[in-house]
């Protein structure tokens, strides 16, 4: 069966969507990603969609769901590399992905995750560590 590879990079997981996904594949990705977050104890997820030529309401919902589920599992999600024409279309469609962090590219996405992780550990040391 077709699958989208999930790579582990330190404390983060990286997913690069390179194919035109059909709906089942998107749902599989959602399942596998949440499973891997728990398995790897990941603190962040980077989803690179720079190769995606469109994001419709289904894929938009998948991205929002992943972010929400990841947050419950104590991981932050950053969606990176959305193309301008895709962004314009999504806004027109009415999808603004509230609550999903975004970045221009993987590098910037990584910076965001790192700084989030840092502030969290700082909070941790100052607060009550059990």
């Amino acid at each position: 069966m077709e699958r989208i590879p999930i790579l582990k990079m330190g404390k983060f997981l990286l997913v690069s969507i390179q194919v035109d996904m059909h709906d089942r594949l998107a749902l599989t990705l959602q399942d596998e990603l949440t499973a891997r977050i728990v398995e790897e104890n990941a603190k962040g997820v980077l989803i690179d969609i720079s190769a995606l030529e469109m994001v419709d309401s289904f894929i938009g919902r998948m991205l929002a769901n992943i972010a929400t589920m990841a947050r419950i599992l104590d991981a932050e999600t950053v969606v990176v590399g959305m193309q301008p024409e895709v962004a314009i279309t999504m806004v027109e469609l009415g999808l603004s992905l509230p609550g999903v962090r975004t970045a221009l590219n993987i590098e910037k996405g990584m910076e965001i995750l790192n700084s989030l992780l840092q502030s969290e550990t700082q909070d941790g040391t100052e607060g009550s560590e059990t």
């Binding site: 469109m54 419709d56 289904f58």
Partner: peptide, 17 residues
């Protein structure tokens, strides 16, 4: 144009679904 292609493709995706 690329933007309009994307809009049409996205509309197609919604309606075909």
């Amino acid at each position: 144009k690329l933007v309009d292609q994307t809009k049409l493709v996205t509309a197609t995706s919604e309606l075909a679904r």
